[in-house]
């Protein structure tokens, strides 16, 4: 019975993780469709070339032709390669925005404070060392964390600009072709929601900023000297890790609408618009709460 329960649990967790990964993957169905069509056309063109090559030289006195000719379809495949690069970039941007764009992860890392906890044993003996070492610890931890998450502050600080930069690599004509493909895919597979999300994400994301909660993660507003303050005055209110964790727990539980429910807090005014859940009944692209 226990074995059965474990198997069932594993199966359920696998299903949930698959569903989650599928939900964040908005480019694969379209990409596979285009790749599959390309493969079918490659096969047909190659077969036809072999067959027509058998009659294109009518006379037996003609030696095997060695003249190479240009192929217009190569330009089309080149455009497709550009589209694939754009899809990769779009998927990456979407995943980053979905994972970190709400700012929750920034709050968690803000509270991790390894420089505080790791230097705690030195607090009693040599508090002067903490003052100089802790900013370095914080900076190193932050840089390592960003690297491990494949985030680049320069690149990811403005995801909308990053998306626009990727879109500019396509010419107007190439962009129009991609939109035509999106339309065809949507018409052929109306039950597939990924193409609607992808299309809307490209259209909306290139116009208005999104994932603004990422800014706090990439360039935290906390002063490097703050840990020292925390070390000396553990109960300092705004940077109290435990207090913030409590707020976060309340927010996760749905007890509060915002991570910083205090109406007087200036930090609350700076929270990105995406932190607000969309009105009921409307599909929000940047809904990263579920």
């Amino acid at each position: 019975m226990k074995r059965f329960s474990i198997c069932l649990l594993l199966l359920l967790s696998a299903t949930v993780s698959m569903a989650q990964s599928h939900g964040s993957d908005i480019t694969s169905p379209f990409r596979l469709w285009l790749l599959n069509n390309e493969a079918r056309v490659f096969s047909s063109l190659a077969t036809d070339e072999i067959l027509t090559g058998k009659v294109v030289s009518p006379f037996s006195l003609l030696p095997p032709t060695r003249l190479q000719t240009g192929k217009a379809e190569e330009k089309l495949w080149e455009t497709h390669r550009k589209i694939y690069v754009l899809l990769d970039e779009t998927q990456n941007i979407y995943s980053v925005a979905r994972k970190y764009g709400n700012g929750r992860f920034a709050v968690i890392t803000k509270q991790a404070r390894p420089e505080t906890w790791s230097l705690m044993p030195l607090l009693a003996a040599t508090p002067e060392i903490i003052r100089t070492v802790s900013p370095l610890f914080r900076k190193t931890f932050h840089n390592t964390l960003l690297k491990s998450m494949n985030l680049d502050p320069e690149r990811d600080i403005d995801l909308s600009a990053r998306l626009n930069k990727a879109l500019k690599k396509l010419s107007d004509e190439e962009f129009r072709l991609m939109n035509d493909y999106f339309g065809t895919f949507a018409a052929l597979f109306p039950s597939d929601p990924s193409i609607r999300v992808l299309k809307s994400f490209i259209e909306t994301g290139s116009r208005k900023p999104f994932g603004t909660g990422l800014k706090e993660l990439l360039r935290p507003s906390v002063e490097p000297s703050a840990p020292t303050k925390v070390a000396t005055a553990q109960a300092a209110e705004p940077d109290d890790p435990l207090a913030e964790l409590e707020k976060l727990a309340q927010f996760d539980a749905g007890l509060t609408d915002s991570i910083n429910p205090d109406p007087d807090s200036k930090a609350d005014e700076k929270q990105p618009a995406t932190l607000e859940p969309p009105p009921p009944g409307t599909e929000d692209l940047f809904n990263i709460w579920d």
């Binding site: 003249l67 190569e74 089309l76 129009r176």
Partner: peptide, 26 residues
């Protein structure tokens, strides 16, 4: 003397591409 010239076109929706090669002799 064998001379060959080719041209090709591809079309996807409203986007067209064309390629042509000048006559090549052998």
């Amino acid at each position: 003397r064998y001379t060959q010239s080719t041209s090709s076109k591809s079309k996807a929706f409203t986007v067209s591409t064309a390629e042509s090669s000048p006559p090549v002799s052998y």
